[in-house]
Design a protein around this nucleic acid. Structure first.
Length: 354
RNA sequence: UGAGCUAUGGUGUAACGGUAGCACUACAGUUUUUGGUACUGUCUGUCUAGGUUCGAAUCCUGGUAGCUCAA
């Protein structure tokens, strides 16, 4: 079986190679470059170290190694999507789109189609139910990354392998140490991948500029201060408002008038909601509810959090609507709502929060 | 050029004449493969010049600034 392993130079994907070799496979290693190094003078320093380590891994295990650039594809799809989403006042999720469009999209078209399987270092598993493959959660419930995979489709899913999905993070580190992999003690990556060390707000500013507008307390209509553009703030956000007498949380944005609305206190009611409306909902594997004629109990996430939230889902025309059991903080349009079964095992599908 | 009141970090506020504390912000870490949340930590202050006192943010005097009321 021909396997392509996507390796980034981090611990997780390094251990993926080890696991595959242990299982008797001989994967071809791909390092995907997507950074902004050639854009506008930005330099993506980490990639050099990443490539070095990946190269070392490839040599150590005697694997074919290819460095490929999907920079243009990434720019055309993910970065453009991110900027457009922010411009509309929404909260994008570039990393989910990266999985859907780049790692399992553009990569598949250009290189992956020659392979039988694509292996990645995601903390996720697959489960076969009635002969069909479902995305399912990782053994390590805290590191579980199925949320970020919620947007992929069945074709993509059925070609994927997650060799470390049944391991705990601590076990992965342990293996890396035992094998003396140079990435064993590297810090986990975090933050939007293509930005590297670039500050998010600087990035947004470069493309959308600044436009001063008022910060208004939603309950009273009082003007409390100024912001530099609604696109710098997201629903549920506390930091960056520079208002005293808080804490203040962003609860609403008026894109027409460039107003950011806030609410005060540690637990402002307005910060919470119970209804999450999803548009463009797609099942990952298949419609497990046969059109959802009546409400179903589910678990879901509206962000990448360690915890699942309980709720009930129903369908209204094209929309899937989740009524949460508990109040949830920071329901931000543009983020994805990912739905799981009541066991928190199978990842069923996802849609965009309205 | 009348009277009264107030002056404490970036902001809002505490401190019987006895170690200037708290909250928010900002910053830095932790957590997190999305600008979120949460958690931990750090910085910055007694308007000014004198005086009383062992000791002044506190009491007294002048100055300066602001607010209120009169005009």
């Amino acid at each position: 079986m021909k396997i392509a392993a996507l390796v980034s130079g981090g611990v997780d994907s390094s251990v993926v190679v080890h696991q595959l070799k242990e299982q008797g496979y001989d994967p071809t290693i791909f390092y995907i470059k997507i950074g902004m190094e050639d854009e506008h003078g930005y330099v993506d320093c980490p990639s050099e170290e990443d490539i070095e380590i990946t190269d070392y891994i490839a040599k150590k295990y005697g694997c074919k190694f290819e460095i490929i650039s999907l920079h243009d594809e990434y720019w055309e799809n993910v970065v453009k999507y991110t900027i457009e989403s922010v411009r509309r006042g929404q909260t994008p999720n570039p990393d989910m789109m990266c999985n859907k469009l780049i790692k399992f999209g553009a990569f598949e078209q250009k290189y992956g189609h020659e392979f039988d399987k694509i292996a990645t270092g995601h903390y996720a598993t697959t489960t076969i139910v009635d002969g069909k493959t479902f995305l399912s959660t990782a053994k390590d419930k805290i590191k579980d990354q199925t949320y970020f995979l919620g947007q992929i489709n069945y074709m993509q899913l059925s070609k994927l392998m997650f060799p470390i999905g049944h391991l705990l993070k601590s076990e992965v580190r342990e293996i890396a140490l035992q094998q003396k992999l140079p990435s064993a003690t590297r810090k986990d990556s975090q933050g939007i991948c293509f930005l590297g060390k670039i500050n998010y707000n600087d990035f947004i500013k470069r493309y959308l500029g600044e436009q001063e507008g008022p910060i208004i307390e939603l309950e009273t209509g009082k003007i409390l201060g100024k912001h530099k553009g609604y696109w710098f703030h997201t629903i549920g956000q506390r930091r960056g408002l520079e208002l005293s007498g808080g804490p203040w949380f962003v609860v609403k944005k008026d894109m027409e008038q460039n107003i950011v609305y806030v609410a005060n206190g540690y637990d402002p009611e307005l910060q919470y909601g119970k209804t999450v409306k999803l548009r463009g909902f797609e099942f990952l594997t298949e419609d497990v509810w046969n059109g959802l004629p009546e409400e179903r109990d589910i678990l879901f996430k509206i962000r990448h959090t360690p915890d699942f939230t309980q709720g009930r889902i129903r369908k209204e025309n094209d929309l899937y609507i989740i009524e949460s059991t508990e109040k949830i903080q920071g329901i931000a349009a543009g983020q994805f709502g990912v739905v799981y079964d009541t066991e928190a095992k199978l990842c069923l599908g996802s849609g965009v929060i309205m």
